[in-house]
Design a protein around this nucleic acid. Structure first.
Lengths: 173, 173
DNA sequence: TATTGTTATACTCTATAACTATA
DNA sequence: TATAGTTATAGAGTATAACAATA
């Protein structure tokens, strides 16, 4: 406090003399988190667009890579989305020969999802793109800072009950 | 490295023995940032829905509160959205008596935007909701950790060229 | 002719619910 | 009757482009 003036800190950690409601005095760190998260998501979407993939397609492909053989219902539950939404997404990947539906002979209602060889190869490309993306977003941080940030975010994610590896955007807004 | 096995760290910072592509081994911290950001945005949307506001309405109201008297074009530029989109948003706030368009007598094409008394009051409610939201998302962190997280996020936001106080969701995806 | 604000249109994404095929 | 998957429909949100008023 100087001269009775309250002091604030703007987005960038710089002290700012108090004045009624400035755009640089945001509601809080959670807003910063939301803004930065949207930015990161948009930049990632641009990168994977070069692979002709949308973010939901990418997430589904990763989920199938991680847990092959699951039914569409099971995947829908994991991702937190209606099963009807998966149909189109799986179609779009299957049409390109990245994913295949294997009917279960014992219960012909079930479609087990697997990656094809092309799908596996693309999954590895996605991982590489993810690393590039990570460097582009967090490049201004030292390795140690990056690790600290990751640890803090991980704590929050666990506390908030997020499913590891799943973007909550599959759920409503 | 133990026994030639690479070691990974999952979302929650726990070491994980290497195995081919697990959902718990995410592409990187930027993904965690995007996921957590979407979560925070969704939780905030729920809170302000109680004030009968959508996130874009809230952001616009905050922007007008911070820089009153601006034209819609100027605000569109600040928020990074087409001016045509502002029309409906301003309408929705003006119909509720939260915002008013004041014609400029010198140049009757211009509409200067201002908050009404009700709008000012709501802006303060929004700030309070923002603080509650912040506590709900970051409640598991100590004060010092929270400050450190904020500082790291602020560094990234500045490095990435985000406009302080503006959610990039006004821009495309 | 240029600019502010507005309207019209079309497109994308998504959830809900109805439908089919299998059980 | 119940479940997996699919299709149909409808709604929200948004960008693009045409338009009207004013300069």
């Amino acid at each position: 406090m100087i001269d009775g003036l309250e002091r604030f800190v703007n987005w960038y950690g710089r002290p700012v003399t108090a004045s009624p409601r400035r755009l640089e005095d945001p509601p809080g760190a959670a807003f910063l988190l939301a803004a930065l998260g949207a930015h990161a998501a948009a930049r990632f979407a641009e990168r994977i667009a070069a692979l002709d993939l949308t973010p939901p397609q990418t997430g589904l492909l990763r989920a199938i890579a991680a847990t092959p053989g699951q039914s569409q219902q099971a995947l829908a539950q994991l991702l937190g989305t209606p099963a009807s939404r998966l149909v189109g997404l799986v179609d779009s990947l299957a049409d390109r020969g990245l994913v295949e539906r294997r009917r279960n002979p014992a219960d012909r209602r079930l479609h087990a999802l697997h990656l094809t060889a092309d799908g596996e190869a693309l999954a590895e490309r996605i991982e590489a793109v993810g690393r590039e993306h990570d460097d582009a977003i967090l490049g201004s941080l030292e390795d140690e800072e990056r690790a600290r940030l990751r640890a803090l975010l991980a704590r929050i994610a666990e506390d908030q009950g997020l499913t590891p590896g799943v973007h909550p955007g599959y759920r409503r807004l």
